[in-house]
């Protein structure tokens, strides 16, 4: 990548200042491009890796309706992965390169998917909490400065709303069920609450890369702001169906009108990011195995395309 001329830099900065979208052919600093490639590919990988924990329950869903909704949701996530890979491709990287980075451990995906879905209630907890947190983040990203990423977010957010509803519905149904079902829902809540809060990333005073991201308007709101928004709406939703938030320090601050939480275990967060979570190895091995198992199909498709047109 070439260094930008003064005029190009001015053009880029003026566009950012005017809150206009940067488009693929616009001049942009290398750092901006690299930041976006990292962030968008990580986002794409997250959508795709996230299919595994939820896919774990498709064949065991509790009703035909729940099965259809869950499968449609996972299919959406797969589509989100595709849009996001395409958005990243506009920055000059191919899907194959992004997958190679994922397999080499150079690209990450959201740590949340390194936790296991142990019971059917975990499918409720993922939809409600994990998609709930993702939506807060993605709504904010609709205003991100890179055009293709912003437009992908607008499209994705339209599809996301039912994801959270399907999860909440599972939780509500179980909380209205037998004692065993209520215990299962609460257990899932206990295991997913803190990891969901950590999806927004480390606290603002501990977020190394966010300075550039704010200046470039890639990131529009801080981790703690987004996290707080999620907490405020989710605590109330939990109360409605009788779930307890697994945090003894949780309290409502009358002055600020916000819920305040106790300390989160950030050591665990960093450990899981580094690869030491319950499912890190499993998720990556699954993805690589599938990629390997499918190689002959992709090769055949390529070869056949060279062999001419299939008959109508």
């Amino acid at each position: 990548m070439a260094v930008l001329t003064e005029a190009q830099t001015e053009f880029f900065e003026a566009k950012i200042a005017r809150d206009e979208k940067i488009e693929p052919r616009d001049p942009m600093p290398d750092g901006y491009r690299a930041h976006l490639i990292r962030q968008i590919s990580q986002h794409a990988h997250s959508e795709v890796i996230g299919m595994q924990p939820e896919g774990n329950w498709v064949t065991r869903a509790s009703s035909l309706r729940a099965k259809l909704i869950l499968l449609a949701k996972i299919q959406d996530e797969c589509g989100h992965g595709l849009y996001l890979y395409s958005a990243a491709e506009t920055l000059g990287i191919s899907r194959d390169e992004m997958l190679a980075q994922l397999h080499a451990g150079k690209a990450k995906y959201s740590s949340i998917f390194n936790y296991p879905t142990l019971t059917w209630a975990d499918i409720g907890a993922i939809g409600w909490l994990v998609d709930g947190a993702a939506i807060v983040n993605q709504v904010s990203l609709q205003r991100t400065s890179y055009g293709p990423y912003s437009r992908a977010m607008v499209r994705i957010c339209k599809e996301e709303s039912f994801h959270q509803r399907q999860g909440y519905e599972i939780m509500a149904q179980m909380m209205a069920g037998t004692r065993k079902q209520r215990a299962m829902a609460q257990d899932a809540m206990n295991r997913w609450w803190a990891p969901a809060l950590m999806m927004f990333g480390p606290p603002d005073n501990d977020s190394p890369r966010s300075h550039d991201a704010f200046n470039w308007k890639i990131k529009r709101e801080s981790n703690d702001t987004l996290r707080q928004r999620f907490i405020d709406k989710t605590v109330q939703q939990a109360e409605v169906i009788g779930l307890t938030i697994p945090d003894p320090d949780l309290k409502f601050n009358e002055a600020t009108k916000h819920y305040e939480i106790g300390p989160l275990n950030w050591k665990e967060f960093y450990d899981v990011i580094k690869g030491n979570g319950p499912c890190n190895r499993q998720r990556m091995e699954h993805h690589m195995q599938v990629h390997e198992d499918g190689a002959w199909v992709r090769e055949a498709a390529q070869k056949a395309a060279l062999n001419g047109q299939k008959p109508a």
Binding site: V48, M51, Q52, G55, V58, T59, K67, L71, I74, Q75, C78, G81, L82, Y85, H286, V290, D293, G294, A295, V297, R298
Partner: peptide, 13 residues
Amino acid sequence: SEWCSRAPMLEED
């Protein structure tokens, strides 16, 4: 549905 997350490419998923 057993193919979920196991297809040779995302388009096929």
